[in-house]
């Protein structure tokens, strides 16, 4: 990570944030046949930010992304917002822990983050619906987190290889 002037750094992070909000907003319109499963394209930007600007920037980017995208969509503090929030809290947490404690590449980090995003969403659903039944969805989410995480992880690895900032 190179030292940037604060203005340049701020501009770059803001552009990454804008892109991740865009990904977050267009994601529901992508046709995926399995209910509850999505690609998690916004996580590409989260990973790129972490490798380029460090952990603090990624935390900020992920939370701002959820809050601003929910504001734009008009669902802030609704069920969808809390689902995204639960997912993003756990996935950001596990990405930071694994990045610090292990030698995982972006692909592995993305798979782990995708799995924990699913876990976070299910925990929120269990809390909102007041039922443990939602846990039956977890095996499917974890199983599908491997292909989706590998797609987003590979994409961010390819971007990181080519991107010079």
């Amino acid at each position: 990570m190179k030292r940037h002037s604060p203005t340049r750094r701020l501009t770059l992070i803001t552009m990454l944030l804008a892109m991740s909000i865009l990904m977050h907003m267009i994601e529901p319109s992508l046709p995926i046949p399995i209910p509850g499963v999505k690609l998690g394209l916004a996580n590409i930007l989260g990973l790129i930010t972490m490798f380029l600007f460090g952990i603090k920037s990624m935390i900020m980017l992920n939370f701002m992304r959820v809050i601003i995208a929910s504001l734009l969509r008009g669902i802030i503090f609704g069920t969808g917002f809390w689902l995204s929030m639960g997912g993003v809290i756990l996935s950001t947490f596990i990405t930071i822990v694994l990045h610090k404690k292990s030698k995982l590449s972006p692909v592995g980090l993305s798979v782990a983050s995708s799995a924990f995003h699913g876990l976070g969403q299910i925990l929120v659903l269990m809390f909102i619906n007041d039922t443990v039944m939602m846990i039956y969805w977890l095996p499917l989410l974890w199983f599908s987190s491997v292909p989706t995480g590998m797609v987003t992880g590979t994409l961010s690895a390819q971007v990181l290889k080519r991107l010079k900032v």
Binding site: K103, V111, L138, P139, L140, W142
Partner: peptide
């Protein structure tokens, strides 16, 4: 810094796949 997949990634992926199958089996 290298960004390509390494053996830790493969271990993690296998762990997640196995645990999802185990979870499914236990719940069923």
């Amino acid at each position: 810094m290298t960004f390509s997949m390494n053996k830790y990634d493969k271990i993690l992926i296998i762990v997640i796949l196995i645990s999802s199958l185990l979870l499914y089996g236990t719940m069923e």
